[in-house]
Design a protein around this nucleic acid. Sequence first.
DNA 1: GATTTTTTGATTTACGTACATCAAAATTGG
DNA 2: CCAATTTTGATGTACGTAAATCAAAAAATC
Lengths: 341, 341
Amino acid sequence: MRPTVHDIAAAAGVSLATVDRVLNQRPGVRHVTREKVETAIRELGYVRDVAAANLAKGRTYPLVFILPASDNSFMHGLNAEIRQAVLRSSAERTDIRTIEVPAFDPAALVSVLEGLSREKPCGIALVATDAPEVRAAVDRLVRERFPIVTLVSDLTGSLRHHYAGVDNIAAGRTAARLLGRFLGSRKGEIAVLAGSMLVRDHRERLEGFAAVMAEEFPALAILPVLEGRDDPEVAHMLVADALSRHASIIGVYSLGAGNRGLIRALKEKAVDRVLTVIAHELTAHTRAALIDNTIDAILNQDAGHEVRSAIRVLKAKADGLAVIEAQERIRLDIFLKDNLP
Amino acid sequence: MRPTVHDIAAAAGVSLATVDRVLNQRPGVRHVTREKVETAIRELGYVRDVAAANLAKGRTYPLVFILPASDNSFMHGLNAEIRQAVLRSSAERTDIRTIEVPAFDPAALVSVLEGLSREKPCGIALVATDAPEVRAAVDRLVRERFPIVTLVSDLTGSLRHHYAGVDNIAAGRTAARLLGRFLGSRKGEIAVLAGSMLVRDHRERLEGFAAVMAEEFPALAILPVLEGRDDPEVAHMLVADALSRHASIIGVYSLGAGNRGLIRALKEKAVDRVLTVIAHELTAHTRAALIDNTIDAILNQDAGHEVRSAIRVLKAKADGLAVIEAQERIRLDIFLKDNLP
DNA sequence: GATTTTTTGATTTACGTACATCAAAATTGG
DNA sequence: CCAATTTTGATGTACGTAAATCAAAAAATC
C-alpha cells in the first residue's frame, strides 16, 4: 500500500495540516519542520495521489494549442485530432483552447504568446515558427513557469520542455536512403519539392536528404529545390515545369505539403517514364497515389499521437511528474502500399 | 461541468441510494424506476468519474501477463517492459503478475488459463500459441467476462477483446517489397529464416512475404524456409549452410528471432557477395548490424507500446469504457540506419 | 516577564463515488 | 384489510487530498 499524507504526518511527528502546508508550499512552516516533513516524504517514498488531489481541487488543466492558419491536409488533420481531444476533455480534466495565427509570421505568434501570460493556462503547445523573437517569447514563458511543448516543428535552442514531433533530419536522411536504394544503380537527377525554406522542419528534411545523397548516392544529382509554399497549385506548376525541362529526372522527394498538385503533375507528365517518388504526410491523396504506384513510399508523422503526447506531457509537467520518454517519442512512420493503416 | 450522481438523482426524481443501486447493478430496484434512472443517465450524458470511483473503492486492477519462456532478445525486452509497468503500478493502480509457460506448448498454456478462473484477475494478456484448445480456453474465459487481449501473436477466430501487436501479414508484405525494390532488377534466390512454422505470427509473415514476392518480383525465387527455432546457434548453422550451397542467394529475410546467429553467418560467409538483408526486431545485435551495413532494414514492433497498450485496453474493458482505436493500433516500425531511435 | 508574532495542531468541509444500515413507504399475497 | 415482502429514501462513513478556520503552543521582541 502506498503511503498517504497521514503516514508522513505520523513519521515526521507533525500534524496533517503541517504536511499539507509543506506539500502545497503554503507559508507558516519553520525551516526545520519543513525539512523533517520532506525527509519523511523521501524516506517513505510518498507520491501524491494525483487523482485524489484533482478530485479535491476540482482541478482542470486549461491548455492552449497555437496553430498556424495553413490550409493543407496535415493542418486540417492536426485540428481534427485536437477536436477529438476536446471531446475527451471531461474524462481527462482538460480544457483545451486552440488559437490560430497567420503562418510564417513570427510577430503574430509572439503577440499571442505574450497574451498568454495573463490568461494563465497550465500548459501551452505551439507549432513553432523558427525565429529569434519567438524563441525569446517562449523562454520568457518558461521562466514564468508555464509548461511548453513544441508541436510538429521544434524550436531548438529554446527552453521549451519537450518537442512532440519527428526528427526531421532523420526523416530527410531516410527519404534519401529509400530513394537511393529504390533507384539502385541508375544515374540521374532528383527533384525536391518543399513548402518553404523558411520553415525549420522543411530545412531540416532537406539537410538530412542532401547529406545522405551526397555521402552515399553520388550518381544522383539534386536539382535546385522547388518551393511550392505548401500550395497544390504552385506545386503542380513547379513540378510540371521541372519534368518538362529535365528529361533526366528519375526521382522526386516531396518534403512538404501540397502533394495534390504534385500527384497531378506526375500523372500528366510522367506517364512515359519510370519515376521513383517519396512524399511526406499520409492524406487521402497521397494514400491513393501510393496504392496506384504514383508514389513509392510515404513518410508520415501521426498527428493524433502528437496531440495526445503533447497533452500527456503538459499535464505531467503541470503536476511536476515524470514522463515515459519512450512513450512520448514521436516516430517516423514509413508507409509502403503494404502496411497502410 | 459534467453531471454527477446527484444530478441524475434529481433528474430522475429518486434518491441517491437508488441511483447507486442502478449504477452498480445492485438488487432491489423496480423495473420502472430503473428505467427512469437509466433515461436520466442517458439524457444528462452522465459518465461515472472513474478516478473518484476507484478512490472510493480502493480499487486496483489485478492483471496477468502470460508469456512463453523463450530465451531471445525480443522476449527479454517484453519482460523488461512489463517490469517497467510494474514500477508504475502504484500510480496506475495496477497489480501485475507475469506467468511464464513453456513455448509452443498449447496444453501448458491452456492449463494456466484454466487456473485463472479461480484467481479472478480483472484482465489477462497472453502471447497466444495458435491452437484450437487455446482458442477454446480463451473463449471460455471471455464468456466468464474476463477482459482478454492477445499480445504479439494473435488468436484469430477467438473471442479475445483486442490484439496488441502488429499485422504480421502486412509485415511480411512490407519486407518483400523492400527487398524487391532494394534488389531492383537483379535475379536470384532469397533465403528465408523463420523461428517455427508452428507459430502464427511467423506463418503470417511468410504468407505476406511470399504473396508479394510472387505477385511483384517474379525474378526472385524463395528457397525452402529455414526453421531456426529462434535459436542463434541453429540459425547460424542453417544460414551458413544455405549460403555455402546456393551461390545465387542475393537476399535474406529473417522473420523470427535468433538474429545473432544469422548475423554471424553473414559476416563469415558473405563478405565477398552483395546481399540484401531484412530482419525483424530491433535488438542490440540487429542495430549494430544495421549500422555496419550487414542488414539493410529492420522491421520492428515496439514491445513497450504493446505492453502499455495492453494495460490501457484491459483497464478500459474492465471499466466498460471505450478505447481510442488509433492510439492502440500497434504500428510496424521500419528502421533504416538513418531513423534509428 | 509580558506582548507580539510566528508556527503548529485539531478539526471540519469538500470533491464524486461506493457501500452499508435502518427506517419508511409502496407493493404484493392471502 | 392485514401481514409479509419488496422497493425506496435518508443518512453516514470511507477513499486521499485540498483548503479553511480557530485555538494552542512556541518563538521572537521589547
